[in-house]
Every structure is written in structure tokens, then in C-alpha cells.
Design a protein around this nucleic acid. Structure first.
Lengths: 189, 189
DNA sequence: GACATTCTAGTACGATCGTCCTAGTATTGC
DNA sequence: GCAATACTAGGACGATCGTACTAGAATGTC
């Protein structure tokens, strides 16, 4: 549609990548601008502040998450298959997680020590997954679906963090396999 | 002893706290200096660079970890009691973890995206725990002690991260209880 | 084809940061 | 008591950052 959206999307895409690989505080607006070959002043026209750009980046991630979850719902009617699809998503990102950590987890860790507004924004990504997982566990007939949802996220985050710290892909695979065993052991309906 | 050590210790103590609560990159040397009522120039005399100060902070943490582990070895001859002491340590830090995350985990996440030398330094804290846990699992007669060690750390890190993101102390307690159940279920000798 | 809007480039500003220099003050060893 | 050392205070430096301003180019509309 509008031409403007193209530049804006390019900025958000580049910022998403750089915020992930370098961290939010370690990435300057000049870094983002030069990454896509525009000037700082131009970027400022599209996003008046770095915070505003971060918000766009988080929204970009949120939309991607929402779309993925919707897709999974369509593809997998079975609750356990849905849970395993979640685990598979983590596995698919193995090399990125090893090098840069979990994009959701590390951003939350970094922004948690900034202003509260950013902290809440970043947490929304977790909520997206947490609510979806909760729904799945409820579908399986579990009363403590909230607890189970957070438990699964907790295990996945721990696995991602450890494999990042040790740059160890095998560690991630091992831990994810443990999570799958846990899923298998769950009662259903 | 030497008078000098007093100032240096005060600097390292303040830096340790501020790096933890605000993050390394979000803490300026002025912050640290003014925290203990000295000037930037004075701090520069003791630590010629921020990196040098960070190294001192990490060494400070490393010594504290080493001392704790030695203490635990003395207090608890039973391997499972040692593992549970580790879990208890996490529980004891509940309020800090809720507000600032795991001091070891969040520092590793932040420094991982900086220079490699800092990354390796930060990882040494994990190694301290990992090697100790490995020793304990070996003591229990487990061949896969390395895997179990990382698995326990992984679960603990996941719990800390999630309780931090959601500022939820109950979540941490619940996850730690799950870890204790896992410890109880382990075969011994 | 003229006009309004949208976009872009380049630059400048104020603030903050890590680092360093200098000069003076305390402390120590002999 | 004196010289050498260790420490402190305060400020200056270059660099970098986020943000803002201005003028011109591109684009779309009627």
C-alpha cells in the first residue's frame, strides 16, 4: 500500500535484529540507520524516539507470535501436539539462541532494569505464550493450567539461557527432550 | 591491613550492588563513585577502567560462591542435602530475584552481547556451581553428572527468570518445590 | 503542470559517558 | 622529621549518544 510503510518496515526489521543480537542499550539509532543505508535524521522522521522504535519492535514480535499461535491452532487439534509444536519452535531457533539467547527472555532481562513501561511491554510477549499454553492445558482438562503454563515457559527459558551461556546446542536439545518427556507424562482429559 | 583495601572494597561492594540492580551498561562510574561519596577521579585511581572494575566485581562474586560451596560441603555430608542447600540459596534470595533477577544469570545475559573476554569471565560463575553440582551428582553415583548438573542449573535459572519477569515470588517457590521433588526422585549410590 | 504531502539528507545541539591529568593531602617507612 | 608512596578532589578531554531543526527531493493528487 503506502510507500511509507516500506521504509518503516525496513527500520523495524533492522531494529528487531540489532536489538536482539546486540541488545537494546548497546544498539544506537545510528547503528540501525546505517544498517539499512539511511541517515539518523531520516529515521527520526519515522520514529521520534528510540523508545517509540522499541515499542514498534515489540509490537512486531507480538504480531509474529500471535500469527504463529493461530497457525498452530489450525494445524494441530491435539493439545499435546500443540505443546510439542511450541517446543519445536525453540529447537528451530537453536543456532540463534546459542549465539544471542532467547529473543524474548533476553529482552525482558535487559528492559526489566529500565523504566516500568518498557518492562510491561516486553512482558506482553511472555503473556502471549502463557495465555496460549494455559488454554492448551485447560483443553487437556488440567485445573492448574496457569501453573503448568508458567512451568513449561520456565523450563524452556532455563534451557535457552543455559545453552546461550555455554554456547552449547546439545545442551538445548537435551533439555528440550526432557520437556517433551514431561509433556508425554501429562494426563489428558 | 592496608588502608587502601578499605576503599577498594567499598568500591567493589557498591559496584556489585549497582551492576546487579541497574545492569552493567546502565550503571556509570559516576553512579558508583557518588554512591560511596567519592569522586570519579578517585575511583579511576583504584580501577583504571570500568572493565577492570567489572572484573573485580566478578572475582568478588566468585570468591563468595567458592566460600559458600566450601561451607556447604562442611555442613552437609549427604549429597541430596547439598543439592537442597543449593535450592535453598535461591529461595533465600527470593525478594532480590523478583526485583532484579538472578545476579549470575542476568549478568551473563547482559555481558554475553559484549566482548568475549567479559562473557568468559561471567560464565566462570556458572562454572563454579556447575562443577560443584557435578561433583555432588558423581558422589551419588550418577554417570551423567555433567548433564544433571546443567539440568539443575537450567531449571533454577528458568525459575528465577520467570519469577523476575512476572515479579512473582510464589512462582519461584512453586518451581523450586518442583526442583526439590526432582531431587527426591533421584537414585542415590 | 502546479501544489501539498511525504520523505530524505545533513548537520547541530545538549547531555552523558569513560578516561585521564594535575595538584594537593594523607600516610608510611626509615 | 623527611622523603617516598598512596590517596583524594576536581575538572578537562574527546567521543558518542538521542534528539531536533532545516532545506531540498520525491511522490501523489487534482
Amino acid at each position: 500500500m503506502e510507500k511509507g510503510k516500506i521504509s518503516q518496515d525496513r527500520i523495524v526489521t533492522a531494529a528487531t535484529q540489532l536489538f536482539y543480537t546486540q541488545g537494546y542499550n548497546q544498539t544506537s539509532v545510528s547503528d540501525i540507520a546505517s544498517e539499512i543505508g539511511i541517515t539518523k535524521g531520516n529515521l527520526h522522521y519515522h520514529f521520534r524516539s528510540k523508545d517509540e522504535l522499541l515499542e514498534a519492535v515489540i509490537n512486531h514480535r507480538l504480531h509474529y507470535i500471535t500469527d504463529s499461535l493461530e497457525q498452530w491452532d489450525k494445524e494441530f487439534p491435539e493439545p499435546k501436539a500443540r505443546l510439542k509444536r511450541f517446543v519445536k519452535m525453540v529447537l528451530n531457533q537453536e543456532s540463534e539462541i546459542m549465539r544471542y539467547g532467547c529473543p524474548m527472555g533476553s529482552l525482558n532481562v535487559e528492559l526489566g532494569k529500565c523504566q516500568d513501561s518498557l518492562r510491561n511491554k516486553a512482558r506482553a510477549m511472555f503473556d502471549e505464550f502463557a495465555n496460549w499454553l494455559e488454554k492448551v492445558f485447560k483443553q487437556m482438562g488440567h485445573k492448574d493450567s496457569k501453573t503448568l503454563s508458567k512451568h513449561l515457559l520456565s523450563m524452556a527459558q532455563g534451557a535457552a539461557l543455559m545453552s546461550y551461556v555455554y554456547a552449547d546446542g546439545k545442551l538445548l536439545k537435551r533439555e528440550l527432550k526432557e520437556i517433551e518427556k514431561w509433556i508425554d507424562s501429562l494426563a489428558q482429559k
